[in-house]
Design a protein around this nucleic acid. Structure first.
Lengths: 348, 348
DNA sequence: TATTAGATTGAGAACGTTCTCAACTGATGC
DNA sequence: GCATCAGTTGAGAACGTTCTCAATCTAATA
């Protein structure tokens, strides 16, 4: 009686059932034709031994490991882990497992990971790349990004110059609408805080500019302040900078969720309340946002994850498939951190 | 010139170098003896083709997949993703990759995952089990938990009745100290909110009781309220219950971080401020805790992750190794959410 | 009864690696 | 000149699966 303690092989099953391993293969693989009597014998042997095929051996033979890899900055990031959650859920439906690779937003680590997971023969890769706008991939490693032998899809972040499928939020449009919302409340001096190097943030900035221009408000570049990814409490420093250098600021528009927490800290330090003293609008939902009633552009992370996995499987089936970008609508969730600007209201 | 587009095999390298694959194996595996001349030829062929061994084939041959699996409730949980972060970092140092399995705190999914990762021949398993105190593992699946063929370690949560290594915080002691701290401030009516079914929470409750008893304060069982894992906003409901049924409550002690956010929400709803109206002490650090200046028992997640991986590798090398439990100190980080109770202060 | 189509079955190759074993090479000592 | 030895090398088995191909069996037909 098998209790899982030993790992049995297909040969053990064959011997116990008194057939060849080819026949066992037919029964468990459910192909070819097997007589009812034999099938039953085999099934009994299988459950007797608790036999489960060795996925590694299958992988070698089938050139498929039933594994997808997710390469991302850090699983500690809320957006990322929500994405991985959705991805893993979707992958499991197809009996796939998910390998996690943190790059710590570091180019070398991203490359290292991409190399390892290649040699591991993963069936597909979902990449939230650290390659930011302006950075160039060394020729030596370019194959990691553009070779077609392993299906790969970019999620959330694009790499300019590499033609791959991309799944992302409709950053430009959602940002345009968020900005328009602020403008509609009466804000004309909207300070922007974000990590500009990310392709997503660039898109969000485009939307911001479009909304301002449409409203006839000049875009003041010194009101857009840039954060480095690695900087600790960047949000705090930048909010301070913005509020010091531009006391006319009536609204803060934060383009990365990671920055928002310490922006709040700075507001608290200055005794500024939202929305009375300053309006606040940020990207990506979070428990904090709910608790603080912060108006937020919420990305549909579940949908992005689901779409990414679906597309990856399409690509695995048909690698020649035409490259394209899918945009998922992000939604402005209005809470209570934005209102008519005080100065504006007074002026009236 | 290899550009990674094709996957070359050891035979390709052998052919190019004009030697046998055995010799190539000797060179890249760095064993046996090879003449300098041959070694050079092989090295050249390797880099010419950008040859990287197929990990799957190695896995089949070596009975080692260079993979560990982490089975946990949900990667969206802050404690869990911080743990996975630490685990992955540590695993990478040893050229191991990490498979993520979310159980959604669901028994069936945990079993399903354990089965799959077994057939995948992972080299080791780190399990944050959903098996809570009182639940019994069906005999049929017991082998998934106690069979010695794959090294497995429990992290954070113990399963009573299964003898496995366990890495956890010193829950009882840290909780004892946290409670003592509240008592030292003058609190005698400390309401406790937690998901009692978890082994960790049970330990924390023990520490709480010990501190009360030591101070001669009777333990009022109706001041300990229990949350179900799956309940939405359980923290809010339970805080409300506690404050309604026990208006004498001067401090809330929250044993699970997941509950704390909505506890805050309820305090906000009632217009209660910490620490003036009520003191608040919680487990597990979080950006919220920092922002709200909440006094917190902080677990050393990095250390737990590191210890877990180290121990797992020990076990992989020596499966007979004696089972034992490692406790990692959790630390009380005092911020500003606890003070002398108002009523108490007034009474004086 | 002989023939044949179709159903059923097993032997064995292949996937890409590691590593044992045996064989070969030169050089040294007698 | 021959035996010995260390250093070097290659053939091929093994890991556990899938699946092709050919062989065997069954039953139905002429």
């Amino acid at each position: 009686m098998g209790n899982g303690n030993q790992r049995y092989t297909i040969d053990d099953v064959a011997k116990l059932a008194g057939v060849s391993k080819a026949t066992v293969g037919r029964v468990i693989g459910n192909y070819g034709s097997v007589s009812e009597k034999t099938r039953k014998k085999v099934m009994e042997a299988v459950s007797e031994l608790d036999y489960v095929p060795n996925t590694i051996a299958q992988g070698l033979r089938n050139h498929s490991t039933k594994t997808i890899a997710v390469v991302l900055g850090s699983i500690k990031n809320n957006y990322c882990n929500a994405l991985v959650y959705a991805i893993e859920k979707e992958a499991m439906k197809r009996d796939y497992n998910v390998l996690i690779c943190n790059t710590h937003e570091n180019l070398d680590k991203e490359i290292k990971h991409l190399q390892t997971i290649r040699s591991r023969q993963v069936d597909g890769i979902l990449l939230i790349s650290v390659y930011t706008v302006g950075k160039v991939i060394p020729d030596k490693y370019r194959y990691l990004y553009d070779s077609p032998d392993i299906p790969m899809i970019f999620v959330d972040r694009n790499i300019i110059g590499i033609k791959k499928d991309l799944i992302e939020s409709n950053n430009e449009q959602a940002s345009y609408e968020a900005t328009k919302y602020l403008i509609s409340l009466g804000h004309r001096n909207i300070g922007v805080i974000g990590t500009v190097a990310y392709s997503t943030v660039q898109e969000r900035l485009k939307g911001y500019r479009r909304a301002l221009q449409e409203a006839g408000i000049p875009v003041e570049s010194s009101m857009i302040v840039d954060a480095e990814y690695s900087e600790n409490r960047a949000g705090q420093r930048l909010a301070a900078k913005l509020l010091d250098e531009h006391p006319e600021t009536t609204a803060l528009y934060v383009l990365n969720n990671t920055l928002c927490g310490t922006v709040l800290l700075e507001l608290k330090r200055r005794g500024l309340k939202t929305p009375d003293d300053v309006s606040l609008l940020t990207w990506d939902d979070d428990e904090i946002n709910e608790l603080f009633d912060i108006t937020t552009v919420v990305q549909k992370v579940d949908e992005i994850g689901k779409k990414a996995v679906n597309r990856l499987f399409e690509l695995m089936e048909n690698p020649q498939s035409q490259v394209y970008t899918q945009k998922v609508d992000a939604q402005l969730v209005i809470r209570k951190s934005c209102s008519v600007p005080k100065k504006h209201a007074e002026r009236k």
